[in-house]
Design a protein around this nucleic acid. Sequence first.
DNA 1: CAAAGCATGTAATCGGTTACATGATTGT
DNA 2: ACAATCATGTAACCGATTACATGCTTTG
Lengths: 197, 197
Amino acid sequence: MDIRCICLGVLTLGDKTGYEIKKHFERAFKHFFVAGFGSIYPALSELTGDGLVTCTDVAQDKRPHKKVYRITPKGRERLMDALLNTPPRHKVRSEFVVLLYFAHLLPPERLAELLDERARDIEESLRTIDHFEQQAHPSPSREMVAGLGRAALKAQLDFIGERRDWLLSEIGDYQRIRTPSRLPAQDKQPEAPSRAD
Amino acid sequence: MDIRCICLGVLTLGDKTGYEIKKHFERAFKHFFVAGFGSIYPALSELTGDGLVTCTDVAQDKRPHKKVYRITPKGRERLMDALLNTPPRHKVRSEFVVLLYFAHLLPPERLAELLDERARDIEESLRTIDHFEQQAHPSPSREMVAGLGRAALKAQLDFIGERRDWLLSEIGDYQRIRTPSRLPAQDKQPEAPSRAD
DNA sequence: CAAAGCATGTAATCGGTTACATGATTGT
DNA sequence: ACAATCATGTAACCGATTACATGCTTTG
């Protein structure tokens, strides 16, 4: 499923400009799906070319002109096809977790910074979800998506809160054992090959 | 942070072949970071070319030959640089959630299938985590990554379990209201533009 | 007065996925 | 007998991010 399909889906909820589409799914699934203008605008052009949406130019005063898109019956067909046949993938690409996995190589201040930054990001996402839920009129799907996001994010935030200090002290111990003298750790020779995997 | 950096990180834990690197981080962060052979092998070639790892050809009988990679001091420097300067991003791209957001357009059987499939995927990921924790020797970073994954996944699984039947019945109601006759919903004209966003 | 919001688009680049190609061995 | 594991690689393609380009209005 690509961005074209998601644009079609959002247009199901009413006619919109590219700008509005982006805002909409920023509020609705920011934390589950990202897309920038660089993908949305070309997607809308293609959809127009394929007759899956229509485009109306609207002039405004005191605002830039805008292009309002509307889904066509052919577009609805295509959307249904995608909705019925897309496998429900869920991919995560977390550089944060990778960094965490190599925590033993990091100075403790850096590790603390990483954990705190991630916690702040999660808190912000949670606020976004609450905010959206208040202002959009409720529907079962919206509630479900919001609830799922909240559950996943809150679990991570709580976990980080619970283990932050523990991890920091464990990592500190570990590094003190591996580098008892004043030599920085990265100056050591590469370890012998180990099967201890 | 790209795959090259992560390969360097894994090589910090001991010398490995490309195949072993992939296995390693499949077990360690499968659910947080994916990478196929198509990215790993070229990455290792580049690292070798840049002198960040060395490569030793090892012939084996009854097995294909292999190439064992070892991180060099220059590689460690590069890794530390990346570790210290990479912002802790965390991106999710969930087609599952998008599908869920458009649940009202889906036949209930399809929706049920999606939820159940996602639940099964999560259960499998949880098993992977438990399995890895048992066989790898414990370290604070590993425990942290495993715990974080477990927390996030378990929260989602529980949420799906709690709300599955509720969502299905709500969506059923919703669709019965919108389509009281026998006409399929997608034959309706596109709605009037609405600000009810 | 500066920043954020409204509004659209293009071009270059980068990186990842997929498919293809090969082939012996071990476990079910 | 068939699937899975071990083991490496290339090439084409696709899609996404980023930077660039523009410019007025509203809010703080």
